[in-house]
Amino acid sequence: EVTIKANLIFANGSTQTAEFKGTFEKATSEAYAYADTSKKDNGEYTVDVADKGYTLNIKFAG
């Protein structure tokens, strides 16, 4: 089991951190699914992958 950390960075400057656990593939998939659901309210996003994929910096356009 691994933990994927997602740092969500919103257009207004606020941030949120979420953690997803499971296999690398499952946790990563859940992090992207979470970003997709947040996209409806926060606009399109880009992802900067860090820490060999264990940290995702997800920046929303607003």
Rank of each mutant, 00 (worst) to 15 (best):
E1G: 09
E1L: 13
E1F: 13
V2W: 04
V2P: 03
V2H: 07
V2S: 05
V2C: 11
V2Q: 05
T3A: 06
T3D: 02
T3C: 12
T3Y: 06
I4L: 06
I4G: 01
I4Q: 02
K5F: 09
K5Y: 09
A6D: 00
A6Y: 00
N7F: 11
N7A: 05
L8I: 11
L8E: 00
L8A: 02
I9H: 10
I9Y: 13
I9A: 05
F10V: 03
F10R: 03
A11W: 09
A11Q: 10
A11K: 10
A11D: 06
A11E: 09
A11Y: 07
N12K: 04
N12S: 08
N12I: 04
G13H: 05
G13Q: 06
G13T: 04
G13S: 05
S14G: 10
S14P: 07
S14T: 15
T15V: 14
T15E: 07
T15W: 10
Q16T: 12
Q16P: 01
Q16W: 10
Q16A: 12
T17P: 04
T17K: 09
T17A: 08
A18V: 15
A18P: 03
A18G: 06
A18T: 11
E19K: 08
E19A: 07
E19R: 08
E19I: 14
F20Y: 04
F20N: 00
F20P: 01
F20I: 03
F20K: 01
F20G: 01
K21L: 08
K21N: 09
K21V: 13
K21E: 06
K21W: 10
G22C: 02
G22P: 00
T23P: 09
F24E: 04
F24P: 05
E25C: 11
E25K: 08
E25R: 07
E25L: 09
K26C: 12
K26W: 12
K26L: 09
K26H: 12
K26A: 13
K26V: 11
K26E: 13
A27P: 00
A27C: 06
A27V: 04
T28C: 11
T28V: 13
T28P: 00
S29L: 14
S29V: 10
E30M: 13
E30A: 13
E30F: 07
A31N: 01
A31G: 03
A31C: 08
A31H: 01
Y32W: 07
Y32R: 06
Y32T: 04
Y32C: 07
Y32K: 06
Y32H: 06
A33R: 11
A33Y: 08
A33L: 11
Y34I: 04
Y34Q: 04
Y34C: 07
Y34W: 15
Y34E: 03
A35M: 07
A35N: 01
A35E: 01
A35R: 00
D36K: 05
T37M: 15
T37W: 14
T37R: 15
T37S: 15
S38L: 15
S38V: 15
S38G: 11
K39I: 12
K39R: 12
K39L: 07
K40M: 12
K40G: 12
K40Q: 13
K40F: 10
D41W: 14
D41Q: 12
D41T: 13
D41F: 13
D41A: 12
N42F: 15
N42A: 11
N42E: 10
G43H: 04
G43L: 04
G43E: 07
G43M: 06
E44M: 10
E44N: 11
Y45P: 02
Y45K: 02
Y45D: 01
Y45E: 01
Y45A: 02
Y45L: 02
T46C: 12
T46P: 00
T46M: 08
T46S: 10
T46K: 08
T46A: 07
V47M: 05
V47E: 01
V47D: 02
V47P: 00
V47A: 05
V47W: 04
V47G: 01
D48G: 08
D48F: 11
D48E: 15
D48K: 09
D48Y: 11
V49H: 07
V49F: 11
V49Q: 07
A50S: 12
A50C: 13
D51H: 04
D51F: 03
D51T: 01
D51E: 07
D51N: 08
D51K: 03
K52Q: 14
K52F: 15
K52R: 13
K52M: 14
K52P: 03
K52H: 15
K52C: 15
K52T: 08
G53M: 03
G53N: 03
G53P: 03
G53K: 02
G53D: 03
G53A: 03
Y54Q: 06
Y54G: 05
Y54H: 10
Y54W: 07
T55M: 06
L56Y: 03
L56V: 06
N57P: 00
N57I: 14
N57C: 07
N57T: 11
N57W: 09
N57V: 10
N57F: 09
N57L: 08
I58Y: 10
K59G: 05
K59I: 15
K59C: 11
K59Q: 10
K59A: 08
K59S: 11
K59W: 13
F60Y: 12
F60A: 00
F60T: 00
A61Y: 12
A61W: 14
A61V: 14
G62W: 07
G62K: 09
G62Q: 10
